[in-house]
């Protein structure tokens, strides 16, 4: 793999047809391979537009976006870009194509023309990682909202992408489903897969290695989570989560070391009495 950035957005702007102002403007953003970026912002801040740009679904109307060095404005590269970057939407019904769970997961690799053993191995692995192995023969549309979201993720994983873009892809999960989804992401990230995650949940942000805040279509802030928690969280109008209040008090009391993440699980693990 090359050492260059996996995503490189340069002076990008995007306007939807008929819109009076651009949804995204003046964006310069470079994401290195293996990063886990949390993309935050209120409704209408341009996060989802940015996510679609990174998958060549939207082409900047000004400036440029490169994925692993490939220019997204070149239609001949779109297929190669999407093989390497999988986008998982908020609503899984937007991307489930087959009526049986395992067939839906196999859809992407089949289109790549891979040998059937390879396809089977990829499907098995994707189902295992998302905890859907036992439901492989079920009808896709009989699944619950949370199970469908895991199915959408499994379909993306079967493509063995270099990067995953998640656009509020945990919104329908219950607390347990969300925890296992996050564990799955942690494992993938540990194996070097780049993750760009759009979310509103501070507990999910805790796992990111970098935080980018979008506001009015521009990047309003870009930096390390530690600094975000210390200085910026409230400044951007995000709620200070109770996890963060706990972290601060525990750290000030010397119960957890500096650098502990503000998630209940991590706080309990780091606790020293």
């Amino acid at each position: 793999m090359e050492q260059g950035p996996i995503f490189s957005i340069q002076g990008a702007e995007f306007s939807y047809k008929g819109a009076s102002s651009p949804a995204v403007k003046n964006v310069d953003l470079s994401v290195a391979s293996g990063e886990w970026v949390a993309l935050l912002g209120i409704n209408g801040s341009g996060k989802s537009t940015l996510a679609k740009m990174m998958n060549a679904l939207l082409i900047p109307t000004r400036g440029a976006c490169f994925v692993m060095g490939m220019d997204t404005s070149d239609p001949e590269l779109a297929a190669a870009i999407r093989q390497n970057v999988a986008l998982v939407f908020q609503n899984p019904d937007d991307q489930i194509v087959a009526s049986i769970v395992e067939e839906d997961v196999a859809f992407g690799p089949e289109n790549l023309g891979l040998p059937s053993e390879t396809i089977r191995a990829r499907v098995d692995r994707a189902l295992r990682l998302t905890g859907l192995s036992e439901m492989r023969r079920r009808g896709s549309y009989s699944l619950s909202g949370g199970q469908k979201q895991r199915l959408a993720l499994a379909g993306a994983l079967a493509m063995e992408p270099e990067a995953l873009i998640l656009d509020e892809s945990t919104s329908m999960l219950d607390p347990e489903g969300r925890a296992s989804f996050l564990n799955c992401l942690r494992e993938l990230n540990a194996r070097g897969i780049t993750i760009v995650q759009i979310t509103h949940r501070m507990e999910e942000v805790a796992h990111a290695s970098r935080i980018v805040v979008a506001r009015s279509g521009e990047v309003a802030w870009d930096g390390s989570p530690d600094f975000f928690w210390e200085e910026k969280c409230a400044g951007f109008g995000f709620d200070i989560p109770q996890e963060l209040e706990l972290l601060r008090s525990l750290r000030d009391g010397g119960f957890v070391p500096a650098g502990t993440k503000p998630a209940v699980h991590d706080l309990l693990e780091a606790l020293c009495l």
Partner: peptide, 13 residues
């Protein structure tokens, strides 16, 4: 809420 889940974890410890 997180405080309750954390307190549950503390009890286990």
């Amino acid at each position: 809420p997180p405080s309750v889940r954390f307190a549950q974890g503390l009890r286990e410890k």
